[in-house]
Design a protein around this nucleic acid. Structure first.
Lengths: 147, 147
DNA sequence: TTATTAGATTATAATGATTATAAAATAAGA
DNA sequence: TCTTATTTTATAATCATTATAATCTAATAA
């Protein structure tokens, strides 16, 4: 569709069906998915798709500033299609990540920045999501056996 | 020494020379080192030391709340012996991480936290350190050839 | 429309970080 | 000093990510 073409044209990179599918999935998905989650989904449409393509595409999109690579999940990279400044709240148990769209003006004084050119900041709020604070897996299993 | 024993006693874990050396190194070192950096250093004192011991020890120390695992370097885990609330400034090029010991009172309103129990926050300032913004490797090489 | 080609995709191997396993060693308490 | 639970070591296994090279294709222009 034209919209897809437009979205990519701006990036000056080749428009391929795989790339459209990956970016589409990211934009629809609010969970900040990992590479394997993206692969699993997009692979349903493109059974021949290679894992390498997902990595290549994501790296390209990051390099072109079209998506952002998140760091709070130390086990794997997670990706965010929203490159506007915003923050995140992460569940320390299940690693669910949700957006925090609030403006926090934070300034770092010169004498505290050790000669760095400070370019920006990102706040990571952390806590426990409602699902993790209610039932644990064993409890869920027992519940499913009863009901 | 007595001090080491005290430091560990509080954790209720067995005091071994390897563990003492690892925590000692972390406390002396302000660079928030990675596992391999820790291994490289401690291995000089304990040539028989295994990589697994470093991982085991670090995981144990994290679990006991004695050190903190950092996430801003997506390539590898980095460790911080300071568990008091504080923030960080990271160089996006060389991944140097320095402490930011300033207090930023940040509150996340209930209606923005999607049912999470919010436990805390961590600010990641990012930028370019003075070394990375001045000379690149090629330039340094050429300089060293001249001088 | 077709031909050309730079760049993308695929399959696969390689690398690097981290975890798992099991045997040998040792700290801590009796 | 003895006993034992825990730790260390050596090593294999796993998982995420990157590299490679052959094949394919989107984009451009004749």
């Amino acid at each position: 569709m034209k919209k897809d073409i437009k979205k990519y044209k701006l990036l000056n990179i080749k428009l391929t069906p795989q790339r459209i599918a990956i970016l589409d999935y990211l934009e629809r998905n609010k969970t900040h998915p990992s590479v394997s989650e993206i692969f699993k989904y997009v692979n349903r449409r493109f059974p021949s798709m290679s894992f390498a393509t997902v990595y290549n595409t994501l790296n390209t999109l990051v390099q072109h500033g079209r998506i952002r690579e998140l760091t709070m999940d130390n086990d794997k990279k997670r990706f965010d299609p929203n490159t506007l400044p915003h923050h995140h709240l992460t569940c320390i148990k299940c690693k669910r990540i949700i957006d925090v769209d609030l403006d926090y003006p934070l300034s770092l004084p010169e004498n505290k920045s050790s000669g760095f050119k400070v370019l920006g900041n990102h706040i990571e709020f952390y806590g426990i999501c409602s699902e993790c604070s209610s039932l644990n897996k064993q409890q869920k299993k027992k519940l499913s056996e009863i009901i």
